[in-house]
Design a protein around this nucleic acid. Structure first.
Lengths: 340, 340
DNA sequence: CTGTTAGCGCATTCAC
DNA sequence: GTGAATGCGCTAACAG
């Protein structure tokens, strides 16, 4: 015989405490208008029955989903995971559930924005490192559920972005300071990539630094492809096979930088003596590899994004807010003056 | 003036299509008892109104949450992220939402099991690399929402585990085959750690291999601490400072292995000539570092776990199912015969 | 202060 | 095959 004990509801509690359901609801929601005595009775009944409110009912009645959605290319990059951690850390103390939408392929990318993300589904959305499809911008903006961008820029959305122009500038400037004149730029920037503004900005910084140093950018020194070590390996090989190869390479992520390191090794080049390499992000591996890099506040970006979202849900700002996080040059062992 | 267009409901669709709400609900749920003609009418109305059913209402009415919870130490280890990816990939094609509970501290660990995980909150739960608190085992087992374990063993739960005894055996055997007689075992196994059975099993395999090779295990060769490169560095240093230090070290994760590599370097030991090092997991970095390791099917373990859960929800098995995933020795450049 | 009641949007009987 | 009615568990508005 099935002993399906149906879950205890608010009515059971009310009965047990000898009060009405309304009162139980009030103590549940910390309403001030409940006498201490009855409050205590209700509390007792709740704990005796080990009662927990049914979230679905609560959500339906409230007209809120009490959940936050995060849409991101989670698993492709350590940096995204760090940001996610930051978001999760601020949500953990709230009543919001965190539901994750992982985007690894183009079709799911569109699908998530189209299907899943609606007022009825989440109370707020944060998009990490992913370009918002133009087709969905308007709807997102009009929705009651606010959207926050992290590590991606768009003038109409509140966002926390990294000062990537400055980061790119710093990286390049560091190389220039060391005496390099031939600096390669290697990234996964490309129109087909979801990940968009960050690399563009870093590139801008790269160009600015070059110009400030009176160095004419060479088109052949800029390469880009997929975001993987393998791809970076190919791209770097291409750079190093040039008639006049760069003496330093700025890779727009630490992961890419490892591919560059690999290629250097393959070409019999010793780092940093023959070739300087600088990465970006300062993920855990960077420290181990002694990689010079541009550190950005990964976890912090998630925290700030989460906070922005919570605030926006509480009271929508009149206009988009923008938080700009600084970067920091971390000099380690993969950069040095160019060979004499 | 606020133009709060209230979301379109099933009633709007019914009205538009000139039918009752029941009928709309039927076509929504692919009920066979709807005439093709009206089905078409309803479909048209749905798309004209761009109607989407309200998940909260649906859940309440259905008495299901349509969400799956994953509780794991997500962000601490790349391996966990890989497993999560696997789970997400099978859930992405279903109507289930995936909500994540990140456990980084002890109190949240207890809290999640206690508060969040209840029938009313999720329809199913998967626990990754985390020991289930004994105090909650019974409740979990009795719940209508099945619990699946991934990378953690418990006789009462369906689970997908890795053959870690064999993995530990293989790693040790590989070292023995190379001629090593003094093999250290370095792990993050400890009672205070959530992560539990995996390291214990690997240790068992280590001991078995030693015994099979007629080598008496030495207590001082077994060390454990936190799961971090820094910790591994300390532990390895300790090992290498022994009067008779091991000539090979088996670290129970690739992350730990990097710490060992670091310590070796610090001690002026060259790998693999002076010291052999083998890791575990074969995360992405292992390939880059040319680390000999034991590969396990990380992503696959998540996939299988997700499938197990879906099946359990559909029809609870009479007794726990157990899927055992094999490991594979991947020989790269950090292991070699001991110094002469 | 507190009990009662009316929805929230959908699925699901039950008659027709 | 289809419409109308009932209930899922909770919140909020309304009396008292």
């Amino acid at each position: 015989m099935l002993d399906k004990k149906s879950p205890v509801t608010i009515r059971d509690v009310a009965r047990r405490a000898g009060v009405g359901v309304g009162t139980v609801s009030r103590v549940l929601n910390d309403s001030p208008s409940v006498s201490p005595a009855t409050r205590e009775k209700v509390r007792a009944a709740i704990s005796e029955l080990d009662y927990r409110p049914n979230p679905s009912a609560r959500r339906l009645s409230l007209g809120k989903t009490l959940t936050i959605g995060v849409i991101a290319p989670f698993f492709t990059r350590p940096s995204v995971v760090e940001r996610l951690r930051g978001i999760e850390s601020v949500l953990a103390d709230t009543e919001y559930d965190l539901i994750v939408y992982n985007v690894e392929s183009g079709n799911r990318y569109e699908t998530y924005f189209q299907e899943r993300v609606r007022q009825e589904r989440v109370d707020g959305l944060v998009v990490i490192s992913l370009r918002v499809p133009e087709a969905h911008v308007q709807r997102l903006l009009e929705s009651d559920a606010p959207t926050i961008l992290v590590d991606i820029s768009h003038p109409d959305f509140s966002r926390v972005i990294i000062d990537d122009v400055d980061g790119g500038y710093k990286a390049t400037q560091h190389l220039l300071d060391l005496g390099h004149r031939r600096v390669g730029f290697l990234s996964d920037y490309s129109d087909s990539t979801f990940h968009f503004t960050a690399n563009r900005d870093r590139y801008a910084g790269y160009i600015q630094a070059l110009k400030a140093g009176n160095i004419e950018p060479r088109p052949e020194y800029t390469v880009h492809g997929e975001h993987s070590r393998e791809s970076a390996y190919e791209l770097a090989s291409q750079l190093l096979s040039l008639d006049e190869p760069p003496t330093a390479i700025f890779a727009t992520s630490d992961t890419l930088a490892t591919g560059v390191l690999e290629a250097a090794d393959e070409h019999g080049l010793s780092v940093p003596d023959d070739l300087s390499v600088i990465g970006y992000d300062d993920i855990e591996m960077a420290e181990y590899l002694n990689l010079t890099t541009i550190r950005q506040q990964l976890f912090e970006s998630g925290v700030r994004g989460g906070e922005l979202l919570l605030e926006a849900i509480a009271s929508p700002p009149d206009e988009p807010r923008c938080i700009l996080l600084p970067t920091e040059l971390v000099v380690r062992a993969t950069t040095a003056p160019p060979p004499a």
